[in-house]
Each structure stands twice: as structure tokens, then as C-alpha cells.
Design a protein around this nucleic acid. Structure first.
Lengths: 151, 151
DNA sequence: AAAAATAGCACTAAACCAGTGCGGATTGCT
DNA sequence: AGCAATCCGCACTGGTTTAGTGCTATTTTT
């Protein structure tokens, strides 16, 4: 299915939240705020620590902070960490072409789509997500979830 | 996982092939040519008939043909038929916003990515895939028919 | 009648996803 | 010192999806 996994989706939401804060936020708070199952939230945050995207503060009033500025965290990286390497179709990463390359006409088109997605995800950072959401807040409260700013 | 299912991938390949031919091609021939499991191939082609993308010719020397000109069959449609509706994240299709919309900053960016992918898939037709592959043909003398991991 | 092909079902094994649980370590507060 | 909040690391489970298989019937050509 051409779909982000829930874990990836959650990770994006959580990281974006951390990017807006400048003090540790606990898994507890995050799961309550977004109504996500607490163990899920905790697992995701733990995983993000192990790959160096967040840092943790232990003990009471502890929590998580972004390990790097929000400008430096791309959507591509988040997807890669949570979902594994992005591979629209397997042959994208088979450098010498698939085994039936001389009769398969579709590789070019699929790789083109793959590249476009990849590029968009590379360009989109937590900072740009935050910036866009700020715009929406000022213009319209809830209709017409502003789209095109990133396009 | 952000990936096309194998069935979708196979469908694209098979339809592209049919788009290049102008006579019925049997499931037998197709599965042999691309080294795909025959029952798989047959199932996919049958499914494509039921949704009106291909037509079948029964009996000896029968097979499948495109039901419509290759210009009118989009990648979006194929994905939709084989994989179900394209939904990068669930909230893309929740018109009134997700339950935490007022605190979720990420919807805009994900919808932007979704729209881009959708647009590319709408623009890409079997005809354009075929056209592109014709260009590549000028430089591919590979002669390897090992296993068929095309996707 | 035999052969080649599609039609329509139903089934299975394996992988993956989403979510849960628990015992332990670390820190802050009282 | 003791307690509570919090992170840490690992393992487990139930359910869904994917990929692939099988069988019987029907249609058409030779």
C-alpha cells in the first residue's frame, strides 16, 4: 500500500511538536495531547533517541528535545528511520537494472515518481512544516487546510 | 511502507506491454516473458477485465487487449484499482480534519506531498511510459534473464 | 473431441503493522 | 531516605495484508 505507516506519521507529529518547544516534553504529555497510545509514543521517542534525532532528559520533569535544529531534520530522514529505506519499487535500487530490463518498459516512469517523492521529502524540514502551520493559523481557523505553500 | 505492492507493479508492467501490442496476448505468454508466476499474472489480468481496463478474448489464440487507448489509462487509475484508494495518511481524506487538527501541525505538509504524488500519477499514462521507454532503447544491450524481480 | 485459453472462486503461508507489557535505571522533590 | 516521574531496553501478541496457489467450469479454435 502506498501509505505512510502510522509510526512514521506519529513520529512526524511528535518531532514537529518538539521542534516548536524549547524544553523537554514527556512522552506522557505528548500522548495525552495527541491522543495517541502511550506505549506507542514512548517507543517511537525511544527509537528516535537511538538514531540521534532526539535527546532525552531523565528523571522527574524530564522528557525529550530535538537533538538538532528543526531546519536540519528532513521528512526523508524521518521516513527512512521509521519505515526503512524508501523504495517505491524494488528495482529503484538495483543499479544495474532489473533482470528483465530489456523487456520492462516501466522502470523509467516509476523511478521518476520515486525521485520526485524523494526530492520533496528532502526539501521538507521540520522547520518548513512548522512555518507552514503558522501561516494557516493566522489566515483561516479550520476550513481549506492550506495546501500549496510547500509546492 | 511507502511502496507499491507487487501486484500493482505487475499490473503496470502487464498493461504497458499490452499497450505496445495490438493483438491479444495470453497470460501464459506474459508470465513467461516477464518470469512472473502464472497464477498471479492470470489473476491480475482477470481483475483488470472486471474493472474495464482490459478486454479478454477466449479460446485458442485468445488473450488480453487494452480496453482503451494507452493515452487514457493513468498510473493513478492502475494504483487505485490494484492497491485501493491512494491515501498517504488517513487524514488526507478526512474532510473535517483529524480529531487533533487544532494541534497537529503536520497535515499541510503531508497533504502537499500527497497531492504532488497524485498529480504525477494522473499525468503519467501508459502512452507516456511507452514513449519514454522507446527513448531508452537506444542504449541497453543487456542480455541477462536470471530471476524476475522486476519491482 | 481435444487443446488452449479465460472466468470465478476459495484458500494458505508468511510477513508486517500496531499496539502492549514489564523489570530496571535515573533523576528530582519532599 | 524515600517516593514518584521519567526514560531504557527488550520481548511479545493479535490482526491485517501481501504474495502466491489450486481447482473447476466455460468458451473458442482446430
Amino acid at each position: 500500500m502506498l501509505k505512510l505507516s502510522k509510526k512514521t506519521d506519529y513520529a512526524i507529529i511528535l518531532l514537529t511538536h518538539l521542534g516548536e518547544m524549547h524544553m523537554p516534553v514527556s512522552a506522557q504529555e505528548l500522548s495525552a495531547h495527541y491522543r495517541l497510545p502511550h506505549p506507542m509514543t514512548a517507543n517511537i521517542l525511544k527509537q528516535l533517541v537511538t538514531v540521534g534525532m532526539t535527546e532525552s532528559v531523565r528523571g522527574q520533569h524530564g522528557g525529550y528535545v530535538l537533538a538538532r535544529p528543526a531546519e536540519g531534520v528532513t521528512l526523508a530522514e524521518i521516513v527512512q528511520v521509521m519505515d526503512g529505506p524508501f523504495t517505491l519499487v524494488d528495482c529503484v535500487h538495483q543499479e544495474e537494472g532489473c533482470k528483465v530490463s530489456q523487456c520492462c518498459s516501466t522502470r523509467g516512469a516509476l523511478i521518476a515518481l520515486h525521485r520526485r517523492m524523494e526530492q520533496f521529502m528532502e526539501e521538507t524540514t521540520l522547520a518548513s512544516i512548522i512555518a507552514e502551520s503558522q501561516l494557516d493559523l493566522t489566515s483561516q481557523p479550520s476550513q481549506d487546510h492550506g495546501t500549496a505553500h510547500l509546492s
